[in-house]
């Protein structure tokens, strides 16, 4: 399959060797190559520059509906580790790796903490949680009064904020999600165990002679 030597490296500025990426993650080489098929389709949806920009990310997440969404923005920002407004292939694979079923819970808890710590202060603050609740209401049919939102925040912080200082630190978060494991469901994507069958065309573009599954 070496004869295929595609133009991936030239067209994708953040392209990294699948063998290297597989060694850094829970993915096999074949799975990294299958992820490249997904990456190509997302990164070429608006501007074919080999990078995923925020608009392309949101289009992929919301199935071609153009939506501005606080939560999708936050995920994008965490995937965009180089903080340049775009996700390259290496960023994409390493960030998705956190969502792999085989990744230790501690790494998932770290990522989820960063997800909710929107302003990166090292704490999940009440005002951030309120902002997220209001954003959620904005995208759904749910209508809740400010009193009810405050009651939900009171209950949540009385459960999660052990030292009652009005913000949730990393240890408090870990204890809270350990007691409420359903909160970690969003941190595991079963799809990641099945990507070579979802994107079988990777076989035609493989640059590796002996595919490792």
């Amino acid at each position: 399959m070496g004869c295929f030597h595609s133009t991936a490296k030239r067209q994708h500025p953040g392209y990294e060797d699948p063998v290297d990426l597989a060694s850094q993650t829970s993915f096999s080489v074949s799975e990294v190559e299958a992820l490249f098929e997904l990456f190509k389709s997302i990164s070429g949806s608006v501007i074919d520059d080999g990078l995923i920009n925020k608009e392309e990310f949101q289009l992929a997440l919301f199935k071609n509906q153009r939506k501005e969404n606080l939560f999708a923005n936050r995920i994008f920002d965490l995937f965009d580790v180089k903080k340049r407004g775009a996700i390259d292939f290496g960023d994409f694979v390493r960030a998705l790796n956190v969502f792999h079923p085989n990744i230790p819970m501690d790494e998932k808890i770290d990522f989820s903490f960063k997800l909710y710590d929107m302003d990166s202060t090292g704490f999940i603050e009440r005002k951030e949680v309120k902002q997220m609740l209001i954003a959620l209401l904005g995208e759904s049919e749910m209508r809740l009064s400010d009193d009810i939102i405050e009651t939900i925040l009171d209950k949540t912080f009385s459960d999660a904020d052990a030292n009652q200082d009005g913000k949730i630190d990393r240890t408090e978060w870990e204890n809270f999600v350990t007691r409420n494991p359903s909160l970690m469901k969003i941190m595991t994507l079963p799809y990641l165990k099945d990507i070579t069958t979802t994107f079988p065309s990777f076989v035609f573009n493989s640059e590796v002679d002996d595919l490792v599954t």
Binding site: F71, V129, I152
Partner: peptide, 25 residues
């Protein structure tokens, strides 16, 4: 439901957190 009083359980329902959508063609 008790979950309805857990802000994070509500927030995690956002479509913006549903990365599974990336894999659905």
């Amino acid at each position: 439901k008790p979950e309805s009083m857990n802000a994070f359980a509500l927030i995690s329902r956002s479509q913006g957190f549903n990365l599974g959508n990336l894999f659905e063609k």
